[in-house]
Nucleic acid binder design. Sequence first.
DNA 1: TATGAATGAGTTTTCATTCAT
DNA 2: AATGAATGAAAACTCATTCAT
Lengths: 193, 193, 193, 193
Amino acid sequence: MSPRSKEQFEEIREASQRKIFDASLELFGTKGYEATSIALIAKKAGISKGLIYNYFDSKEALLQAMVDDLVSVGDDMIEKIWSDDPAKTLENLIQSIFEWFRQNENLNRLLIGLSTQVGKFQFVHDMAKGKMDGYLIMLEGLLQEIGFEDYQTEARILGTLFDGIALHHMLMKEDYPLDEVERMLIKKYCMKP
Amino acid sequence: MSPRSKEQFEEIREASQRKIFDASLELFGTKGYEATSIALIAKKAGISKGLIYNYFDSKEALLQAMVDDLVSVGDDMIEKIWSDDPAKTLENLIQSIFEWFRQNENLNRLLIGLSTQVGKFQFVHDMAKGKMDGYLIMLEGLLQEIGFEDYQTEARILGTLFDGIALHHMLMKEDYPLDEVERMLIKKYCMKP
Amino acid sequence: MSPRSKEQFEEIREASQRKIFDASLELFGTKGYEATSIALIAKKAGISKGLIYNYFDSKEALLQAMVDDLVSVGDDMIEKIWSDDPAKTLENLIQSIFEWFRQNENLNRLLIGLSTQVGKFQFVHDMAKGKMDGYLIMLEGLLQEIGFEDYQTEARILGTLFDGIALHHMLMKEDYPLDEVERMLIKKYCMKP
Amino acid sequence: MSPRSKEQFEEIREASQRKIFDASLELFGTKGYEATSIALIAKKAGISKGLIYNYFDSKEALLQAMVDDLVSVGDDMIEKIWSDDPAKTLENLIQSIFEWFRQNENLNRLLIGLSTQVGKFQFVHDMAKGKMDGYLIMLEGLLQEIGFEDYQTEARILGTLFDGIALHHMLMKEDYPLDEVERMLIKKYCMKP
DNA sequence: TATGAATGAGTTTTCATTCAT
DNA sequence: AATGAATGAAAACTCATTCAT
C-alpha cells in the first residue's frame, strides 16, 4: 500500500521474470521450443505453472519476450567495437561475434531451430534478416576501408562464414576449434597491410 | 493361391512408402518434426493414419527411415565428381553441393532443425559429423593439389562456408543469391593458375 | 471340381482351423483374450490375418468355437470312469480331473480369465455352472454309495477343492504339488472301508 | 501467498484419488483391466481423462496403486483374529476370510483375472504367492494346536478350499451358499473336542 | 482358398491453458 | 502475486475388420 511496497512488487516481478527467462532459455535452447513443456519450465524455474501465465499470455508470448530481451543484450555488444582504425574495428567485431557464440550457445541453437519452421515465428526470420543485412553493410564498409579490392564478395564470404561457424559450433560443441578459427579470421582479414 | 504376387505386393508397398516419405519430407521440412502430426502426414499423403504404422513402428522410426533414404541419394551425387584435374573436381564438387542445396531445401531445413535438439536424434549428429569430416579431408586434398599454400585453413573455411550458405539459403530462400555465390566460389577456389 | 478335390478342400479347412485353434489357445491362454491380437494369432499359426476371417466371423466367434471344441474333448474323458465299485469310480474321476489339469493349463487359465468379466462371455459362465452342477451331483452319489455320512457337505467340499486346486496350480505352475495332492485326495476319499 | 493451504490441497487430492480408485475398482473388477478404458473410468469418476494422469503415470500404475491400497486394508483385518484359544482363532480367521469375500468381490475378481496373464502383472503373482504361503503356515500352526493329526495335509486342504470358494463365489455370485459353507467349515475345523 | 494392404474407430497419453482460492 | 487441481483438445499409436486380387 505504501509506495515502498510498489517497488517491492516491481522487484519481485523482475526476479520472477528472470527465473522464467533463465529456465526457458536453457530448456528451449537444448530441447527445442515444441519439446519443452510449460510444466517443465515452471519446475526448473522453481515456480508454479500458473505464475508463468501471470507474466505471459501464452507459451509463444513467453518465447518472443525472452528472445527480444536477450537479443537486445546482444545489440549492446556491437556498440563498443568502434575504433579509428577499420582493421581494429573489424578485429573487435570478430571478437565480439565469437564472444557471442561462446556465451550464447543456447540462444543460438534456439534461434536456428526456430528459423527452421517456415511460416511460424516470423519475428525470428525478420530479426535474423535485419541483423544479417546490417552486418553485411558494416563488413562491406570496413573491408573497403581496410583496402580489400573485391570487398563486396569478401563481405558476403565473411558474413556467411560467421553463420557457418555458428552451425558447426552448434553441431560439434567443444570439439569445434572456436579459438583457432577466430585467430585465423583475424589474421586473414585484419592484417591487410 | 496367393492372390497377388510377391512383386505386386512389393510394388504397392513401395508406392505407399514413397507417398509417406514425400509427405513427411515436405511437412517435417517446413513445419519441423515435432510440429508435424502423423494425422497431417496421412492427410497429405492421402492415406489413413493407421497405414503409416503398417510401414513404420513409430513417428521417430519414420523420420529415421526417411532421412536415411534421402541421404543415401545424396551420397550418390558425390560419386560423379571425380576428374583428372583437381580444379575441375573441386568445381564439380561445388556444383554438386549447390545443386543439393537447390533440390533439397526441405531436407536441409529438417536436418538443421533436428540437430538443434541436444541429446535427441543422435543419428543426425553422427551423420552430420561424418559427412563434415569426409568433406574436410576431400577439400584439403583437392586444395593442396590445386596449389593452395595454406590448404588446411582454406579447407576449413570452404567447409564452413558451405554450411553457412545452407543456413543463409534456408533463412532467405529465394532472396539468397545462390547462383552468384556459386560462381564466386568457383572463381576464387578453382581458378588458381 | 472332381469329388476328390472337395475332400481335399475339407482336409485343408480342417488343417487350417486346427492351426488357428492351436495358436489361439496358446495365446489366449497365456496373454488373455483381450491382450491377444488377431495379427499375432495369424503369425503364430503361420497364416494370414484374412484367412482367420474365412473361418470365423469375428475374434469372439473364434474364441467361442475354440472353447466349444476343446471342452467337448474334455467331456469324453468322463465317459471312461465308470466302474462297478463307486470308490474306484471316484478314484478314476479324480485321476481324470487331475489329468485334465495337467494337460489343459492354457485352457483352464483362459476360462478362469474369461469368467472374470461379468456380463461378457455368458457362454463360459453357463458352461462352468453346468459342469459344476453335474459334478456336484455325481460326487454326492458316489460319496453316498461309498458310505460317507455327511455326503452332501463332503461333495461340496470336494467340488470346491477341485477348483481351488485349479487356481493354485494356475498361480504356482510347476511349484504346485499336483501329484501329491492327487494322492492325498484319493487316500482321503476313496479308501473308506 | 499460497492461496490454498497445503492441507487443503492434500484433501482435494485425497478426494480425487478416492474417486478414481472407486471407479477403477468397480470397472476393472467387473469388466477386467484390459477391457476398461481410461475414458470410462474418468466418466464413472465424474472427472476428466487428463486428471487421472495428474495422479498416476499410466493405466498400469493406477492399477498397481489401487491394488496396493486395497490389499493393505485386507492385511489389517488379519490383525484382529488372535485369541488364546486356537480353535477360536481359526474361527475368527475363517470369518475374516468370508467377510473379505463378501466385501471385496470386485477386487477378488480383478486379482484372479490379472493372475491369468502369464508374464504380466508380476506384482499380483508375487503378492498372491506371499499371502498363500503366509496362510498355509498360519493354518498349519492352528490345526496342530487344535489337535489335528494330519495337520499339514488338512492345512493344505483348507487353504485350497478358501481359493476354491473364492472362485465358486465369483462364478455363481448370489447363487453360491457362502453362509452355509462358512458354517460348515467352522463346524468341521473348529469344533475338534 | 489365401493374402496382406488399407481403414477408422478407439486407445493411452500429453500439455497449454484456466480458475478457484 | 502465487498455487496447483482440473480441463479438453489433440497427439501417438493399436487393432478388429474389410476387400481387391
